[in-house]
Nucleic acid binder design. Structure first.
Lengths: 181, 181
DNA sequence: GTCTATATACAGATAGAC
DNA sequence: GTCTATCTGTATATAGAC
């Protein structure tokens, strides 16, 4: 699996996009095939079942997670600021995969729940050395979760009430002051 | 509609429970009728379509919201602490309705998104007089959203990594200190 | 008010041609 | 590797008996 075929990736992109924009129920194999520009049979060659499609998205999350953790740990303005900046839906590949998997998690796909929980644990481990105590760490994690929740509720292109620009900077500064030792 | 029949309410309870425990896809009219102990025809007498079922849940949210806002405004330990305490899934009727509607919102039901946004605005208005500035208010709101997100991801009875007991008290105290004038 | 029976559409998945 | 055709189950909704 060193070099997965391009068609495979574009099918996964289509599935992810449908989950984000129209929700889990709309992300059928039929709709996914149509959006990816292949037939149902073509899709089923790459992913033998809907579970295989979900597994593909989970694998994508794990790959993107490694990069993200590395980036947070080496950020010039510090891990906490970097973490919070990227917690807001920037439209990054990781953000998209997280929202897509959260839709699946909320429809009983426990493997998706597990994968999201694993990523959250990686984040906690990266930030714990930077925070005063466990309460401060939880504050940071919950603010990040809150940003994701608002983005997750914004289905159909309606943006949630999430701070941006200067407001986000001010929020990051407030969180830093409240959690730094 | 001053006194809705009991059967109607128990159908709504069943629908809500299925959304929370098994997700939007599992919350079919068939499954809802079975869980409520009525036939499909019986359900359809009270709710003529699935949209009517969703509307019923939205109406329930509005009724519960009024009580909640009143309770927050008059809480002995202050609105901020009261708001955060009730943001954690206590299993209250309001919490359940919020999670159920968030599942619908994430499946393209824009009326559910609107209702949840309206409630969030009511909360903001109740807390704004209690906070230093808009940034502090957003911090509180996002922590609350984060608590809901973690509970929302806990499908099938697997609890999320949400603070409880003394840890929650410590978190509330940290947020209060960071946001009080 | 509550039931059974049924119509129509679409979901996931299989078989096999090209 | 990609396609069409088809099977089987289940979703929402209607009709009408009791």
């Amino acid at each position: 699996m060193a070099r997965p075929p391009r068609a495979r990736d574009s099918v996964l992109d289509a599935f992810e996009g449908l989950l984000i924009e129209d929700g889990e129920r709309a992300a059928t194999m039929d709709a996914t095939a149509r959006r990816a520009g292949v037939s149902k049979g073509g899709l089923l060659y790459h992913f033998r079942s809907k579970d295989a499609l979900v597994d593909g998205l989970i694998e994508r999350l794990r790959v993107l997670s490694v990069d993200d953790i590395e980036q947070i740990k080496t950020a010039p303005d510090g891990p906490v600021a970097a973490f919070m900046r990227t917690s807001i839906m920037t439209g990054s590949a990781l953000d998209r995969t997280i929202i897509a998997l959260s839709r699946l998690a909320q429809n009983g796909h426990s493997s998706a729940s597990d994968a999201l929980r694993d990523l959250r644990t990686l984040w906690e481990e990266a930030l714990r050395p930077e925070t005063r105590d466990e309460t401060a760490l939880q504050l940071i994690m919950l603010v990040s979760d809150g940003l994701y929740f608002n983005n997750a509720l914004a289905v159909g292109g309606v943006p949630g009430p999430v701070p941006a620009g200067h407001d986000l900077d001010a929020l990051i500064e407030l969180v830093r002051r409240a959690t730094r030792d």
